[in-house]
Design a protein around this nucleic acid. Structure first.
Lengths: 113, 113
DNA sequence: GTAGCCAGTTTCGTTGCGGTAACCGGCATA
DNA sequence: TATGCCGGTTACCGCAACGAAACTGGCTAC
């Protein structure tokens, strides 16, 4: 019982990470890695529904991870882009991706036995 | 529409990561960082219920991340420990923790405005 | 005038994670 | 006899994430 009950207070909040634990945030960030993208350019490769994509984008905008830019053209054109803050997430995300690529087979094998 | 629809197939499976997206796995791994721990030594600092802890431990055992060792004593004594595979998760997890420690204030500030 | 494009919104329903509370079985102590 | 400890199990429940489908609105092209 030697563990500090608040061991995680500054490192692992309620959820493992702000919006990193959910299904879509990480994928959206990876998708915006190479520059701004339009709504329709996110919805197709992510295979996400419009409603869930909108919700995710709004939440990430609130958190300062992305920006939303609407152009007053026709048909409407909206671009989403990573903020500098959002861009800082690419590095730890890459560490996670590397771990998955390296060890997922081992996990799947363990799960099978 | 230039993105490969299978962009994430080898990097970000259905969930962001095997059992990394959920609420407890990361905390359990951090908790076992310094050596084996008993059931009761996990349940107290994690502030988790017995049912959810049992479920999480079983799942992590299936995935080969931890081992469960039951000693035939009285009262019963069960120890959980990280496997070498589970231990490899500490490094990417540290990257996430570092990001959170560095940028969580910025996120909270963005959320407030 | 009708059809299509883009970026949504709305409604409704499903699923699954996590939580609460009660209970169990073997042993030890009072 | 009963009470407590340890490591669970079981039944039930609520909520938030997720999804499918239909609809909107402004503009353009046919």
């Amino acid at each position: 019982m030697t563990l500090d009950p608040d061991l995680f207070s500054d490192c692992l909040p309620g959820r493992p990470l702000i919006r990193i634990g959910d299904k879509w945030t990480t994928k959206i960030i990876v998708c915006l890695r190479d520059g701004p993208r339009r709504f329709g350019e996110l919805i197709v490769p992510l295979r996400i529904t419009a409603k869930v994509l909108t919700e995710s984008l709004r939440a990430m905008e609130r958190d300062g991870l992305i920006t939303r830019t609407a152009y007053d053209t026709n048909p409407p054109r909206v671009e989403y882009a990573l903020t500098p803050l959002g861009r800082t997430l690419l590095e730890p995300l890459a560490a996670i991706c590397a771990w998955t690529a390296a060890h997922q087979p081992a996990v799947l094998e363990a799960r099978a036995t």
